[in-house]
Each structure stands twice: as C-alpha cells, then as structure tokens.
Design a binder for these strands. Structure first.
Lengths: 152, 152
DNA sequence: AATCACGTAACATATTGAGTTACATGAAAC
DNA sequence: GTTTCATGTAACTCAATATGTTACGTGATT
C-alpha cells in the first residue's frame, strides 16, 4: 500500500453527497473510482459519528446528517478512527538504551509539533469551505468554456 | 509494516558510533536489536552522503566522517533518501473531478505546512544536540545509582 | 592462506489499505 | 407476499513496503 487515502476518499464522498439529497454506494464508488464495499466500509465510522445517514432498500443510500459549516476535516479524521498521520516513527516505544531514549525524545518532540499543526489546520477547514472551493472551481470551469465558445 | 523507523535506527546508530572510534555492523545490530544486514543497508545512504565511513577487513567497521555539530536530523533524513513523512495522502494526484481537486488542494495545503514545520524542526536539531541529551541522561543515571548506593 | 567485515542480491515475513465476492438484512415497489 | 434494491459485514485476495534472513562476493588485515 502506498498511502492511506481514507480521509481523501471520505471528503470526496461527503462533497458529492452535498450535491444530492441521497446517493448510493454504487454511485459514490463510480465517482471515486472505487468499490461500493470500500465506500460502505470507509463511511461506517461517519455514520456512527452521526455525520451521515444510510438507508436500506428502494430509494435508499447515503445522505448528510450534519451541517457542513460545523464539521471540520479534523472531525472527519476523528470519525474515521484517527488513522496515523505519520509514516515514520520510533523503533521502540520505551527503550532501555539511553541513546535510544535521547533519539526518541527528539523525534517525538518534532513529530508531536507537526501533528499538532496538522490537526490545527485540519480543524480550521470546514466541509463548507471545501464545498465553496468546489463551487468556485465549477464557476471558473464554466467561464473558461464560455470563453472558448466565444473564441470558436 | 507498521512504521518506517529508518531515521530512528540511523540516529541511534550514529550516536553509538560517536561513543567509539569504530564499531562493526554486528555490534551495532546488537545495540539496535536488529540484523547486521539491516544496518549496512540502512547506512549505505549515509556513507554516500559522506556522513560515515566504512572499512572492510580486520579492524574494519563504521566510523563517523562528519562533525556532529554541523549535521542535523534533516540532513540524516535526506541522506536516507528522504523517506515519506506522512502515512496519509490523496487518492489521485491530478484528478479530473473538481470535487476531488478541491479536496486535494485542502489536504495538500495542510500536509505541506506540517511537513515544512517538521523539516524545520529536524533541521534545527543537530546530532551534537542528541549526543548532549544522551550524556545528560547518562549523568542522571549515574547520580541516581549513587544515591541508591548511599541509601543502601 | 585464513579470518574478518563490509556490499549486495535474493528471498521470506509481516502489516495494512484497498479490491472483490458472497450472503444476510431490511425497506420499498409491484 | 414476492421481487427488487441497497446497505452491513465477513472473508478472502492483492499490492506495497519495511524489516528479517541467508548466501555469497570482495577486499583488507593477520
């Protein structure tokens, strides 16, 4: 596995859900170029956290159960079970070797600071912010197409 | 694989090397609770970067080829080939989907900031700093032992 | 010549995210 | 009530990769 993209997948799914009242796992999987089971599995945590709802049967599927403005990317990360941010880490957690203790202390300090900053950044970005960014990209795309049409 | 601990291993090895003129892969492996081949493989990058030397044959082994005060943890990370810091990332690097573009932009921004901070932190810590920390831990350990002896 | 130690290839192992198949459950439509 | 649709979940496979291990080649010292 290269990288854990569950947060990326989930955000992508949430924004697509924001564009429609309900959407099925199959449709989402098509949007995300993945598998419906992956969608259900990944979103299970969001359902438990109350961010989304899921309905079985005819007309079922996924729908938002939260206000986009009040949910941050950090909240989504938490709902996913707080997957590890870092690929690097210490070899031993509580080593007897004093050398390793010194190494661990330095590494832990730097990693902790970076993690705090990352969490803080993710905490300040709401799903509504992402949605707004998407809408802007849409508008820009339309504008570009229009210009092209004028040129043609 | 749980986590990439090459940086941790390497720093551990470097500090042990700082305590002795030369040390063999086998001895280092014993210190680090790993395998001599892992030591050689991991340190290959450091040798190419000129941070350490290695000598074959009788009396051979590893020795430092740098001033601990002028080498930062970031330098060591670079010598290792800059292994990825983060376990999380985007699903697709250049997606056509505008939703995913918006998601990627936000994620990239946050990750980039965290990475810059991490690199900056690692850049300000020198091997000499780590060595000093180790020496302090040694001194503290001796002091404690002494006190215990007095009590006993 | 023997021994020691690194250099490296090749293969095994373990972990984990992702993909896939299969089947059960439940809700709506007919 | 039966069919159809959609989720829930277990179980399996696949892929990537750090680490562990074995084996053998190379070069330096004794």
């Amino acid at each position: 596995m290269k990288r854990d993209s569950r947060l990326s997948i989930t955000l992508h799914a949430l924004l697509h859900m924001a564009e429609r009242k309900t959407i099925t796992s199959e449709e989402l999987a098509a949007c995300l170029s993945t598998n419906p089971v992956v969608v259900r599995r990944t979103m299970a945590g969001l359902r438990e956290a109350g961010l989304v709802r899921s309905e079985k049967g005819h007309g079922g599927g996924w729908s938002l159960a939260c206000d986009l403005a009040t949910v941050s990317l950090a909240d989504v990360h938490a709902a996913l079970g707080e997957p590890a941010f870092f690929a690097i880490g210490n070899r031993t957690e509580s080593p007897g070797c004093l050398v390793e203790q010194a190494v661990n202390a330095a590494m832990d300090g730097a990693l902790r600071e970076a993690e705090l900053l990352l969490l803080q950044r993710l905490g300040t970005i709401s799903l509504a912010d992402l949605s707004r960014d998407f809408q802007q990209r849409m508008a820009l795309g339309r504008q570009k197409t229009k210009e092209q049409n004028h040129v043609g």
